[in-house]
Amino acid sequence: MDRIVLGDVELTRVVEWQGAFGPASAIVPGVDEQGWQQARPWLAPDHLDPVTGDYLAALQTWVVRSGGRTILVDTGVGNGRERPVTPLFHRREGQFLELLAAAGVRPEDVDVVVNTHLHADHVGWNTRDQDGSWVPTFPNAVYYLPAADRAFFDPAAGHPARAAARAGGGAAAAMWAQWDQMFADSVAPVVASGQAVEWEGSLRLDGALELEAAPGHTPGSSVLRVHSRGERAVFVGDLLHSPVQLAHPSCSSCFCTDPAQAAASRLRVLQRAVAERELVVPAHFAGAGAVRVRSEGPGFAVTAWGA
């Protein structure tokens, strides 16, 4: 397991799955062939299959130990979920809890769960099946949920985009149906348990950790900043899907709700990462899982992989 120490904060990566996730050019469609070719030295072999051109990704959770507490940043896909639009996530049966135990964490040890946003691959292990019902996996944890995502994804909130998608049918309607199922099995039980805290703007978790809104990928997308004894990191969630977006920060992934807003958030967060020498920790980077960056031309470049 990857372990990084930043001052008094320890980060441990738990990888639920790692592998190919479709054509890279479809994941970040705004990058042209020349852009992909120029970025190949960064991308292959950890982030791009040089033979097939597939995007290589990881589904992972970071265990953050800070101030005597155990915090999970995102909770992956989960087991036994109905996700027909996304075959990789559909009825998955993995060993996440065993992997978490190997990192020294039992469910009852977790004090805080941070969902950087409410997509299916970030909330899945919020809950687990218990006698046919979905219950919180981490019984003693406070779950921090972005309020803007609760308002967007909760079927009871009646967001206009849901009605429009259903009226139009097709792929958009199918995705909203999957999001409804995701909310029902991975978010609503946490809310019903009384363990959820919704937040907006920014929220300090302790002296070293602060949540900050970074919308665009979803309305409530957020980042988690770490600052301890002069060392810094930023968990950027899905602001970055591929390292190619460092060189092309204006190019958002195909999964972004508001691509232009996501690009603005990405640029702002990366500029600060350079200025404050933050380690950048994206949700889905394979390989080392984290990167240090510098400004280069209109975008950014890799200084080093990992801590």
Rank of each mutant, 00 (worst) to 15 (best):
L211Y: 01
A286T: 00
P219C: 05
L203E: 13
W199Y: 07
H248M: 06
A288F: 02
S242C: 07
T218W: 07
P249N: 10
R204C: 11
A275Q: 15
S242T: 08
V293L: 11
A304G: 14
L239K: 03
R277H: 14
H241L: 03
C256G: 08
L240C: 09
L224T: 14
A301G: 14
T218V: 00
G216W: 02
G299F: 04
V197F: 11
P249R: 12
R272V: 04
D238T: 10
V234P: 09
V281Y: 06
S242I: 05
T218I: 03
G194V: 00
V236W: 02
E296C: 05
F285I: 05
G306Q: 11
A260H: 06
E278R: 13
G289F: 02
D185R: 03
S222N: 12
R272T: 06
L239T: 05
Q245V: 00
D185C: 04
A262D: 12
A288T: 04
V281R: 11
D258Y: 00
V269C: 07
P249F: 03
V236T: 15
R266V: 04
F255W: 14
G194P: 03
V280L: 01
G237I: 06
D258P: 00
A208M: 01
P249T: 05
A213Y: 11
S252L: 09
V274P: 03
A233H: 02
V223F: 01
H241E: 13
R204M: 08
R232A: 15
V291G: 14
R294D: 15
P215F: 01
L203Q: 13
V269R: 14
V191K: 08
A208V: 01
R272P: 05
P243T: 03
R229E: 15
R204T: 14
D206G: 09
Q261C: 02
F300M: 02
D206N: 15
R292I: 04
E231L: 05
A184Q: 15
R268L: 01
A290Y: 04
R225Q: 13
D185N: 05
P249C: 06
E276F: 08
A273H: 06
V291P: 03
Q178W: 00
E200N: 03
S228D: 14
Q195N: 07
V302F: 13
L240I: 00
L270Q: 09
S250K: 04
S253C: 00
S222V: 02
L279F: 00
S221E: 15
D238I: 00
V281H: 13
V236N: 04
V269K: 13
A247H: 06
A301E: 09
L267E: 13
R225D: 12
F285N: 15
D180Q: 03
L267C: 01
D238Y: 09
S295W: 05
E210L: 02
R277T: 12
Q261T: 12
F255A: 08
L246N: 06
R292S: 10
G194W: 10
S186A: 15
G297T: 08
T257N: 11
R277D: 15
Q181T: 13
G297C: 07
S242V: 00
F183R: 12
S250Y: 03
L240M: 04
H217R: 01
Q271P: 11
S186V: 11
P189C: 09
W305Y: 14
H217P: 02
M182L: 06
V293D: 15
